[in-house]
Amino acid sequence: MNFTVPQIAKMIDHSILRPEFTLEDVREGCAVARKYDVASVCVRPCDVPVAAELLRGTRVAVGTVIGFPHGDSPTEVKVAETELAVHQGATEIDMVLNIGWLRSGDIAAVEHEIGQVVKAAGAAHVKVILETAYLTDEQKLAACWASERAGAAFVKTSTGFAPKGATIDDLALMRSAVSPKVQVKASGGVRSLDTMMAMAAVGVTRFGTSSTTEILQDLARRQVAVSAGRA
């Protein structure tokens, strides 16, 4: 295994999104993110100010979700959510595209909305959540193409709240659909190191997971075992 623990950590968006989480849960999640120096935390919109304060001075970015989890908020609301999140300290924006518009074939409306969120985000990176569980392969491709044309930094599989999360086939399809300047994020069901490694092999560079501690501890144990075997 060629990845180090710090390298894998910088591929993780530590997810703190469950609706029942308390403020103490959010603080504990941010502590995990700080301990392992992950790429970012992904918190509920109401938790952005707390996370921004807790992670100030670290290399951990603060991300949040927009139009979550159904993607059906009016564009104006998604734009307002984005502007507020950035103002409060978010530097990564994970937006759910309008799934109904996409399934209806109104790609122009989907692309326009993504572009409006990208504009509102300014320097913050926008990750577009497709919610692949509800889409055909043709719709997934159309969403990826629209996301790139609209200026998104990432395309992302799932919210984690649909019937199915990230799959290798979907990730490979998404990676093939966008140019190298657009990254691919896996989310939904990323709970083990082996899953991460299989997804990284098809070009995934960012992972949304709440299993950060388990994944990184597993990698550390394996590396110790390998080192011991060489001694």
Rank of each mutant, 00 (worst) to 15 (best):
A220P: 10
H87I: 00
C144Q: 07
V41N: 09
C46W: 10
D106C: 05
A166H: 06
P49Y: 06
T159A: 01
G165C: 08
A150Y: 07
G188D: 00
P49K: 08
M196T: 08
T75C: 13
D218N: 15
L193R: 05
I12N: 03
R175G: 04
Q223R: 15
A52I: 08
D47P: 00
V110N: 01
Q217G: 01
V62K: 09
R44A: 00
T4Y: 07
R221W: 09
D169H: 03
L130H: 08
P6S: 12
F207W: 11
D194C: 02
P19M: 05
G151C: 06
V65G: 01
A201L: 05
R149Q: 14
V41A: 14
V126S: 00
K185D: 07
P74D: 02
R27H: 13
A231Q: 14
K10S: 15
G67N: 04
T213K: 14
A124C: 11
V62A: 06
G229N: 12
A143V: 03
T4I: 10
K127I: 08
V110M: 01
E20V: 12
Q217D: 15
M11W: 06
N2P: 12
G57C: 12
K127W: 04
A225R: 15
G115Q: 07
P69T: 12
Q7K: 13
A133K: 08
E214N: 04
F3Q: 15
A51P: 06
M197W: 07
M174S: 01
V26D: 04
D137W: 09
P6Y: 09
C30N: 12
W101D: 05
Q217T: 13
G189A: 09
A123I: 06
G189R: 13
E83K: 13
F154P: 10
E81N: 04
A51W: 02
D13A: 03
A142R: 14
V38Y: 02
D47Q: 06
L102C: 02
K181A: 12
H87D: 05
E131L: 06
P69A: 14
W101N: 01
A52D: 04
D94R: 06
A142M: 09
R18T: 11
V96L: 01
R103N: 02
T167I: 08
